[in-house]
């Protein structure tokens, strides 16, 4: 798959193209261009570092939505063994925007649940652009309750623009489905580890995001509303989305400063899609570390701690 570049990555794209050209020329005839190539590669590294160290929140939003960004099933492939996908909410349908199943993390049986986006047009439509309907949340709920029965920790992967705003979704109780998940997750007697891997879009994200620890991939976002939505309501213009992205504090660094995220998982230079396996390995280490820590608590203590954690969210004046 050829690399797709975002607008702000154009300098990187140009340098990479030039390097490829030189490599091609140098392999074709006997010309020795190695020095030149090395010089360009160094320049590329510096340029890339310079760009990625100074990303605006709006640029991070674009990275979080990058068409080549690893999705839940990609992470599942890298993080787990023996994955068995489980389908359906047992009531209405199998929502393909939400995937889940049982697997092993370092040998330990776990329940895995996540939003799923599609890569090409056909798949995007099949996955409904990662926007679940109520049956998606109810499938997640079914699997989470099952995990509790079988004493399996739950790992969730958040990557959605939001819950689907559709007629059928409303008819079948989108609000109730989300609310129910929030309530049930707050009381499950097994560890719940939530990771935002791409877009954390509002209630549709939180509906699988209530747990004992919240991790964020470095270039993911987590927000109460999309920057575009916020801009069109508060600025009356969707074009102000970059301003909204700034003000909303939706990037991992800001959220971690605000204490809303427990750990930020560093991504490879250029984003997780440039080296998905490396990104997944960093995430795996963090997940195992947190899981071991959480498993030292008795189930009741775990639930009580989670509850207190939830109560502490929010800043008020007395």
């Amino acid at each position: 798959m050829s690399q797709q570049f975002l607008e702000f990555e154009q300098p990187i794209a140009e340098l990479e193209a030039k390097i490829r050209e030189l490599q091609y020329v140098s392999s074709d005839n006997a010309m020795d261009l190695e020095d030149e190539i090395r010089r360009l590669q160094e320049k590329l590294q510096n340029k890339a570092r310079q760009i990625y160290e100074n990303l605006t929140p709006w640029q991070v939003v674009q990275l979080a939505r990058h068409p080549q960004r690893p999705y839940t099933l990609d992470y599942i492939q890298h993080l787990f063994t023996d994955f068995e996908e489980l389908h359906g909410d047992r009531n209405f349908a199998d929502d393909k925007a939400m995937v889940g199943g049982v697997a092993r993390l370092d040998g330990q049986p776990v329940m895995v649940i996540g939003h799923q986006k599609g890569r090409d047009t056909k798949e995007k439509i099949r996955r409904n652009f990662g926007m679940p309907r109520p049956e998606g949340y109810r499938k997640a709920l079914r699997l989470m309750s099952m995990a509790e029965r079988f004493h399996m920790p739950i790992l969730t992967f958040i990557d959605t623009p939001g819950a689907y705003p559709g007629i059928g979704a409303e008819e079948r109780g989108q609000s109730e489905a989300i609310a129910k998940n929030l309530q049930v997750m707050s009381g499950l007697k097994v560890p719940i580890l939530c990771t935002v891997i791409g877009e954390g879009g509002s209630g549709g994200a939180l509906a699988i995001g209530v747990g004992d620890v919240t991790l964020m991939m470095q270039y993911s976002t987590y927000s109460v509303i999309s920057p575009e939505g916020c801009a069109s309501i508060l600025w009356k213009s969707a074009e102000k989305a970059p301003d909204a992205a700034e003000t909303l504090a939706i990037t991992s660094d800001r959220l971690s400063q605000l204490g809303l995220v427990d750990e930020v998982i560093p991504e490879p230079l250029g984003g997780a899609h440039r080296a998905p396996e490396t990104a997944a390995q960093s995430l795996k280490q963090a997940l195992c570390r947190h899981l071991h820590r959480l498993q030292e608590h008795a189930p009741e203590a775990l639930v009580e701690q989670r509850y207190q954690r939830l109560l502490n969210y929010g800043v008020v004046k007395h």
């Binding site: 309530q183 995001g209 605000l258």
Partner: peptide
């Protein structure tokens, strides 16, 4: 709905209020 001006803090109020109601239920 949630108050945009408090951003993710507002979103978390959804989890917080739902969790509290879980205690009522229990």
């Amino acid at each position: 709905g949630a108050r945009m001006q408090e951003s993710l803090f507002s979103l978390m109020q959804m989890a917080k209020t739902s969790a509290a109601l879980g205690r009522m239920r229990k």
